[in-house]
């Protein structure tokens, strides 16, 4: 579904990604782990087309995306939930969800799309009229995910979804990821909570200083304390 080869990326003069090779097959949950500053967020942002300078190849669903703008990548079926949720202040939950529909063919069937989202995110239903930023961090994170899911992307990129969220809600959220997978959404997950992430993932890549340094099945990595210790301890 997603195949990245020799991906380089720069922020200004700093060469952040130095040749990433990574692939995600349809229906998988793949986890990208590594220390702070290893390049995880940059990898996701490069896949979504948010960096000015990139090089290499990002093939998604059979098409090369590297030079295409972000909105084109959305149209091809890529969803992205950025770090820190980025819920728009002043707007209600419903309006925030509506933004997710604006560029999607599903906007003509808004009621159906809202109903589908309501079935997956029951917590949000009771709060449709509420100003979104007044909800708890966990609920805002759910909304950020729902906003990306409402257009029914083929694949979704999740950046640190559990950051700053109450443990109870984190468990609920990871259940949600399993359910999204069952519904056919492919997931590329960046997560600090390595054990939890490996618990739901099929495979994982370990990123260090802008390069992939290890790649294994999630089960193998969970059992490999040495690798975890070396690359994942903060």
């Amino acid at each position: 579904m997603l195949r990245i080869a020799g991906l380089h990326a720069w922020y200004g003069d700093s060469h952040v990604l130095q040749g990433i090779d990574l692939d995600v097959r349809a229906g998988e949950i793949v986890c990208l782990i590594g220390r702070n500053g290893a390049g995880k967020t940059t990898t996701l942002r490069s896949i979504m087309g948010l960096l000015r300078r990139t090089q290499g190849s990002v093939v998604f669903d059979g098409g090369e995306l590297l030079t295409r703008p972000a909105h084109h990548r959305f149209a091809r079926g890529l969803g992205y939930v950025p770090e820190e949720r980025r819920i728009v202040p002043g707007l209600t939950v419903r309006e925030n969800l509506r933004i997710g529909l604006l560029a999607s063919p599903a906007r003509r069937r808004e009621a159906a799309a809202m109903a589908r989202i309501a079935a997956i995110f029951p917590r949000l239903v009771e709060r449709l009229g509420q100003v979104a930023v007044t909800m708890s961090g966990g609920e805002q994170q759910m909304l950020a995910i729902a906003r990306a899911m409402i257009s029914e992307p083929k694949m979704i990129l999740l950046d640190e979804p559990s950051e700053g969220i109450m443990p109870v809600l984190v468990d609920e959220m990871f259940d949600l990821f399993r359910r999204m997978k069952r519904l056919g959404t492919t997931i590329l997950l960046v997560e600090q909570n390595v054990e939890l992430a490996l618990g739901i993932a099929d495979r994982a890549y370990i990123l260090d200083q802008g390069r992939i340094v290890h790649h294994a099945t999630a089960a193998a990595l969970l059992a490999d304390a040495a690798v975890q210790e070396r690359y994942c301890s903060v």
Binding site: A75, P82, R86, L102, A148
Partner: peptide, 10 residues
Amino acid sequence: EIVRILGIDI
């Protein structure tokens, strides 16, 4: 950036 990642040509 939010409108860009939600498919709108900013």
